[in-house]
Each structure stands twice: as C-alpha cells, then as structure tokens.
C-alpha cells in the first residue's frame, strides 16, 4: 500500500510552501537551523532562569533574617506539594513548542518518504555493502566501486548487505539508510552539483569500519550518459554473484527510508 494513502490530510501543507522543499540537504538544513535557533533560545532562557534563581535565592547567612518561610524539617512526611498549576502551564508551553515543531517536520518526513514516486525519471541503483566496501550495481548489470550519478536527477538506491549490519550514508546529500543482510531498504537523493563526494559506513561493522568509504562522482548528464553507454555487464562473474545475493534477499521485507517501495 502506498504510505500516502493513509495520510491524505498531509498533502495540502506540502504544497503550501510552509514545509521546506528541495533536495534532502536543503530540507535538512532548513529544519536543522530552525531547531538550532529555537533550541538555543529555549536553552538560554531555561538555564538563565535557573542560574538567576540560584543566585537570587542564594543563602546569605544572617543577612536574610527570619523570612517566615516554612522550611523542611528532619523526619517530616513529604506532602503532595503545591505548584501544580504553575507546572501544568510550563508543561503545556513546552509541549506546545515540541509538538508543533515535530508535527512541522513530520510533513517534511512524509515528503521525503514519498518524493521518489512523483518522479518517473529516477535512476535505480543497487548498493551492496560488504566487509569493507560498497558495490554499486547499475540497471544494465554493470558493477562499480564508485557511485557515478548524473547531476539533477533523482537517484534511487536499493541497499542491502552481503555480511554484517552496515549503514550507507552520503553526508553531503544528507542521505542515509541501513544495509541489512537478507533485507533491502530504499532511499533517494538528488545531487545538484557535479564533483566528487564520499559515502561512508555509519554502523560499526568490524576492523575495517573506519575506512569503509566509497567515492561518489556526480557527473554532467552528457558525461554520465557516455560513461554509462560504454559500460557493459561483461564483468559477469561479479554481476552473477550479486544477483544471487539479491535473490536471497528476495522474499525479505522491503521498506523505505526516504522513498517508497516500487
């Protein structure tokens, strides 16, 4: 079932401009900045208030005199304690901030999860993690240890692992998904600037984890087409091997971290 089918109410705000749009990196940055600014404000206010109270009500010894305040005594039974209303108000305020913020990002989540479907022109590439590297399998069966993609086109990745639990991420495109043996996860990204980037493993996977990287090359569309046309599946050996692995993963569940299963 299409996940959006359950969330028709969320479609409207997606088009209203309220929710950040664009590539995953832009969405991430927009939300991150808002969180950072609000988080800093809340933190400064709350901690500042705490410090202010700590200073204002510091014990000044005899200078305080008798303040007539009922202080706790040894051996007394604790009471329920007042202040319920003040606490409730504070809670309400903080809950309001948190819930609105999270709800707002939820629209972006739904957007990220459904984006790839809206574009038929996606490029599908399979990714297989192994100790300790990545292999990219193109629709024509060609395999490569560098992820080559054209600029300005949505790339959809179907990620799995041949051995242990890995996690495939390209920090520059704010894209990440788990690579699980026997299962596949899907994700997407949209590179909009040519250049060389780095993909990394984000889950501890053994001795070579620290260096489990792969190059990601974002090419001019023409250059990419040229490169792609020249590739063949003549490295059939590895192609077949990966085919078998993919078949093992066949009846496993498929899910999406940033896009939708086909």
């Amino acid at each position: 079932m299409h996940p959006m089918a359950l969330f028709p109410a969320f479609v409207a705000p997606l088009q209203s401009g309220l929710v950040p749009d664009g590539g995953r990196d832009e969405i991430f940055r927009a939300i991150f900045v808002v969180f950072l600014v609000l988080g800093t404000i809340v933190g400064v206010v709350v901690i500042g208030y705490m410090l202010y109270n700590g200073y204002k009500f510091r014990d000044r010894g005899d200078r305080d005199g008798e303040d007539g305040i009922d202080r706790p005594e040894l051996g007394e039974l604790p009471e329920g304690g007042g202040g319920g209303r003040k606490l409730a108000l504070s809670l309400l305020l903080s809950a309001l901030i948190v819930i609105t913020l999270i709800t707002w990002t939820y629209f972006a989540l739904v957007d990220v999860e459904t984006r790839a479907v809206e574009n038929d022109d996606t490029l599908n590439i399979q990714v297989e993690g192994y100790q300790f590297g990545w292999e990219f399998i193109y629709p024509n069966g060609n395999t490569s240890d560098t992820l080559r993609v054209p600029e300005d086109r949505t790339v959809r990745l179907t990620v799995t692992s041949r051995d242990v639990f890995h996690n495939f991420g390209i920090p520059a495109f704010k894209m990440k998904t788990d690579a699980l043996p026997g299962q596949t996860t899907d994700t997407w990204f949209q590179p909009n600037e040519t250049g060389t980037y780095q993909a990394q493993c984000f889950e501890l996977c053994g001795a070579g984890h620290s260096a489990m990287n792969a190059n990601v090359s974002v090419m001019e569309p023409e250059a990419y087409e040229q490169w792609y046309a020249n590739t063949t599946s003549d490295d059939a050996a590895s192609g077949n091997a990966t085919g078998t692995t993919a078949a093992t993963a066949g009846n496993a569940t498929t899910a999406n971290n940033g896009t939708t299963p086909a």
Binding site: I27, I31, F32, F35, T105, L109, V112, G169, K176, N257
Partner: peptide, 28 residues
C-alpha cells in the same frame, strides 16, 4: 545543579533526534 544544566542541554538536543527527518542524518 550542574547536572540539571547538562540534562537540559541533553534534552533539547534529544528533541532534534525526535524529528525523524533529522534523525535520519544524525543516526550513527
């Protein structure tokens, strides 16, 4: 008292992780 300050910072940065879109990137 210091622990409460640290916990407030920890709590606020935890809200970032509660937003799934951000969590996707913070994971690992």
């Amino acid at each position: 008292f210091g622990a409460l300050i640290l916990f407030i910072v920890g709590g606020i940065t935890g809200v970032f992780l509660g937003a799934v879109v951000l969590d996707y990137q913070f994971r690992g």
